[in-house]
């Protein structure tokens, strides 16, 4: 099987190209502000996000459900939520230094997700149920805000290192105060945690009522990892609320939390378990067998 991108997917490719340009400009604007203008970076990110959303909307309209019918779609959906959240936070808090950290990561993941198309997996169940929306949307939003809080903790630790090492370069200048980062880290977690909880509860009810994961649904790796994620973030909440802990410790635990998020998201695929997804290449119009190609070549 070889892969040919469908015309719709080229919309996403355009978004990725804009994200690559944005990443260069975002990082460049810190170290060479004269050469890389922040305004151009803003245009790149907004244009990229527009193409990204356009892609997801077209996909949704075509399939009549959320853009999560394939792993590729759900990855891009998740990435769009991260960019959207970052852009909102950037303009809400006048936070110039968030996107230079977010965009290289998002761009990396986007490129990786394009690579996914080659060997994509499709959703196995009827996608038009209420439970799907109740389960997926909160969880995805929760994951996206955890990702952003992970980025805040990276920023926190970077700034912390620079303060300790007395390395006061352009990066030091552009990063906000530790207190600001600590607050934002906290806000994004408290935004994501209730959403994750709702998503998990909805998922549990769905699994119990429709029996789509079988009788032993609670042994599904994704369910287990999801619960572990929930526990980690509950622990962070406890650290901050109960023990009112601040500073580097919270930042480190947030990074661990995000590692679990990533594991929950893609881990089961790597391990061969596919909570919800299976190879169903028939449904993927972009996959064409070599035989078909040969035939068209002969014809032409």
């Amino acid at each position: 099987m070889i892969t040919i991108l469908s015309p719709i997917q080229y919309i996403f490719i355009v978004a990725v190209v804009l994200y690559i340009l944005d990443s260069i400009w975002e990082v460049g604007s810190i170290f060479r502000p004269q050469k890389f203008s922040k305004r151009l970076a803003d245009y790149f990110i907004l244009a990229g996000l527009s193409f990204h959303c356009a892609f997801l909307i077209v996909v949704s309209i075509k399939s009549g459900t959320l853009p999560i019918s394939t792993l590729f779609e759900s990855s891009t959906f998740y990435l769009s939520l991260i960019v959207l959240l970052s852009v909102i936070l950037k303009f809400l808090y006048r936070l110039q230094s968030l996107t230079p950290f977010v965009m290289p990561i998002v761009t990396g993941f986007s490129i990786a997700s394009v690579a996914l198309v080659r060997n994509d997996l499709a959703m196995t169940y009827n996608l038009k149920t209420f439970w799907l929306f109740a389960h997926i949307i909160p969880i995805f939003l929760g994951y996206a805000s955890f990702t952003v809080s992970f980025i805040f903790s990276i920023m926190y630790l970077t700034q912390e290192r620079q303060l300790k090492k007395k390395a006061f370069g352009p990066l030091f200048e552009s990063l906000p105060s530790l207190e600001t980062l600590d607050t934002l880290m906290w806000k994004t977690i408290t935004f994501g945690f209730p959403l994750l909880t709702i998503g998990l509860v909805a998922g549990t009810v769905w699994a119990k009522t429709s029996n789509i994961l079988g009788l032993l649904w609670y042994l599904d790796p994704k369910v287990l990892l999801g619960s572990l994620t929930w526990l980690i973030y509950a622990a962070i909440l406890h650290l901050r609320l109960g023990a009112s802990f601040h500073g580097t410790k919270v930042a480190i635990v947030t990074i661990v939390g995000f590692a679990i998020v990533l594991l929950t998201f893609i881990g089961p695929f790597l391990m061969g378990h596919k909570h919800g997804y299976e190879k169903r290449s028939v449904t993927l119009e972009q996959n064409v067998s070599p035989d078909d190609v040969r035939i068209t070549k002969v014809k032409s």
């Binding site: 700034q159 303060l163 990063l175 906000p176 105060s177 530790l178 207190e179 600001t180 607050t183």
Partner: peptide, 8 residues
Amino acid sequence: DLAIKIFK
């Protein structure tokens, strides 16, 4: 300036 980078 250093204080500004630690406290909001």
